[in-house]
Design a protein around this nucleic acid. Structure first.
Lengths: 153, 153
DNA sequence: GTATATGCAAATGTTTTGCATCATG
DNA sequence: CATGATGCAAAACATTTGCATATAC
């Protein structure tokens, strides 16, 4: 397991390696965006970083997000017009988005890669990336759903 | 094949059946949103309908889109923050989004349903809907890509 | 010391809302 | 003819931009 200071030095290395300055605000933003495992929104990152740096601006948050996208460490997950989230998991995977509690969890499946292969061989489409969102009820919420309305159909 | 007037009467039936009035603007909007096969944006629908109804407003377009979503004839496809499109194909399918020519085509695959089944049995997640976008180069664009830069890697 | 990043405020673009007028059923 | 829809303008948001000041290297 990587400790906090080890994560920070990874971040600093990644930024400097691409010619970006490793400012404290940027490091804090990267820490949350890359390692919080929360699929955060820009606002959420902003609120979080504000605790340590009260004068930080949304412009800086967006600027840093853009850098992370450019260097391939973060991708956008656009669930709906007003629900843009960011995801540091760059491997092909699906998001299980709970319509009740709004939780988002990652789901890895070899079938995703298989679909992308099929698309290439059968449609001549050359895939570069993907975003797969599955909307429904998570394990917890579907339990309580059954408990509350057992005869719904 | 359904003729234009047959499509219109389907639309009118769908609207009235749910207690909505079938105004000419609404019919024109539905016609384009449901049958143009273009995955249009709200602006695109607006421009198109403006040709026949120059005073139509974006508010009416959004209002009608909302109705179509409510009655299950249309869904949102959020490709990125400034690329919200609408899709009348309510069957599970993927979108092949070309990064070069911006074309979007539908891709049906039984593997998508299989993934949704796996998610249910293995993660206890009860899927209600999905959105799967695959970004890359379409058949045409990948051809010209190869032609222009044969040794790229 | 210099180039770059920050934070603020203003601008942008999409979607939503309020309301008086108008058209559908 | 009553209810609900339209079109306009203004409001609400997230995101981007411009610029003077501050900071990293």
């Amino acid at each position: 397991m990587a400790g906090p200071q080890e994560l920070d030095s990874r971040i600093i290395k990644a930024l400097r390696g691409r010619g970006y300055k490793a400012t404290p605000q940027r490091i804090a933003i990267c820490r949350f965006a890359l390692y919080s495992h929360k699929h955060p929104t820009a606002q959420r990152i902003y609120s979080e970083v504000k605790k340590a740096y009260p004068t930080v601006s949304l412009a800086t948050v967006y600027n840093t997000i853009q850098i992370l996208k450019d260097i391939g460490l973060l991708q956008e997950v656009c669930l709906s017009r007003d629900e843009t989230r960011f995801d540091p998991n760059m491997e092909p995977h699906a998001h299980l988005v709970c319509l009740q509690c709004s939780s988002i969890s990652d789901w890895r499946s070899p079938l995703i890669l298989e679909i992308m292969k099929n698309v290439a061989t059968e449609a001549g489409f050359m895939p570069k990336g993907q975003n797969f969102d599955i909307f429904g009820l998570c394990k917890n919420c579907s339990k309580s759903h059954i408990a509350i309305s057992p005869s719904t159909r």
